[in-house]
């Protein structure tokens, strides 16, 4: 057992992450303009940007889903209760006492149990909820033949999810400050290499067959 830097976030995953980040930021900004929270954009520009970004994000998600399924990376998100409590306890208490993070990243398990269950919830509930309500909102003229009263429920639902995603973003960014350093958390998502606990077999395999993916 040893800790080594290996290629954990491949090029597509990094592209997916950062373009998704950018799109979600624009969507939040334009979405809240459409909602009437601010007038920094005129309504038409806000609607156009929001629609284009939403469509782009949908396409990106289609690719990402395909990528997860074909590469087997979906396994990183399988929920587990094993160690979940420990991690939760760490963020609630241990972190203040200067304890070490109880979880060590593994080759086939790059997320801690709390992280995995959060990302899974995001992908299975929040994201589908925002895009289903968003598509319904966009295609409103196709289904609301006679009634103007129904759009309000779609709009309310869409806005609730938007608030939830914004809350996720805030917590997500904050958690980058925990652990060793902010930089140590961000760098893997830039160059792809992260420190992972490897078994000697994994280490030997990577050094022999994928020397470019281990440092």
């Amino acid at each position: 057992m040893s800790q080594r830097y290996i290629m954990l976030f491949t090029r597509f995953e990094r592209f997916w992450h950062w373009s998704q980040m950018l799109l979600i930021m624009i969507l939040l900004f334009t979405g809240f303009a459409i909602h009437g929270f601010h007038q920094l954009l005129d309504f038409q520009t806000a609607v156009e940007l929001h629609t284009v970004c939403a469509a782009s994000l949908l396409i990106l998600w289609i690719f990402a889903i395909f990528w997860h399924l074909t590469t087997g990376t979906w396994r990183h998100y399988v929920p587990t209760t094993n160690g979940l409590w420990k991690v939760a306890k760490f963020y609630a208490f241990g972190i203040f006492k200067g304890e070490r993070h109880p979880y060590h990243k593994a080759y086939w398990r790059k997320h801690n149990p709390l992280q995995a269950i959060s990302y899974l919830a995001l992908k299975l509930f929040l994201f589908p909820a925002i895009w289903i309500s968003g598509i319904a909102y966009l295609l409103y003229p196709l289904w609301a033949e006679t009634s103007g009263g129904q759009l309000i429920w779609v709009a309310i639902f869409h806005t609730v999810i938007a608030f939830a995603i914004l809350a996720f973003v805030i917590i997500h960014v904050y958690l980058l400050t925990t652990g060793h350093s902010f930089k140590a958390h961000v760098m893997p998502m830039i160059n792809g290499f992260d420190k992972v606990e490897l078994s000697s077999e994994e280490e030997a395999y990577l050094e022999k067959d994928e020397p470019g993916n281990i440092r």
């Binding site: 009437g36 609607v47 309000i152 709009a155």
Partner: peptide, 9 residues
Amino acid sequence: FYMPGRDSN
């Protein structure tokens, strides 16, 4: 009716 930009709950 609900109108985006004007209405909110």
